[in-house]
Amino acid sequence: MAVCVAVIAKENYPLYIRSIPTENELKFHYTVHTSLDVVDEKISAMGKALVDQRELYLGLLYPTEDYKVYGYVTNSKVKFVMVVDSSNTALRDNEIRSMFRKLHNSYTDVMCNPFYNPGDPIQSRAFDNMVMSMMVQVC
């Protein structure tokens, strides 16, 4: 479904980034990096809302001709960015949401690993598999 999934640290450096057509990896890196602009914008707009009422899902960050970029931010300001192919019209907002929630859960598991240093790139195989499963379910 997704073509690129990225986890970005609070300081905006990538903790994890994975895209499916690997030859286009660079383009996705640029896309995800640029999307941080909108994420920042949305977070700062959201800052005024009460913490407990805050919606973690940021929705569509920005569409491009070929891709749609969705965002999600955890309470600790770790950002998840997901790039979805525009031609994949079957994907609704709700599905994106649930994918993000799944991603968040898996990320939390990674964080719970006592051998993981927060701030290090994520190398968990479980997380990787989960992301791959999200990207493979194309048809």
């Binding site: 300081e11 905006n12 450096y13 990538p14 990896e25 660079l26 890196h29 640029y30 990096h33 941080l36």
Partner: peptide, 13 residues
């Protein structure tokens, strides 16, 4: 910007 934010691939490119 890429350096500050640590994006290796864009940096290399």
């Amino acid at each position: 910007t890429y350096l500050v934010e640590g994006w290796a691939l864009p940096i290399a490119h």
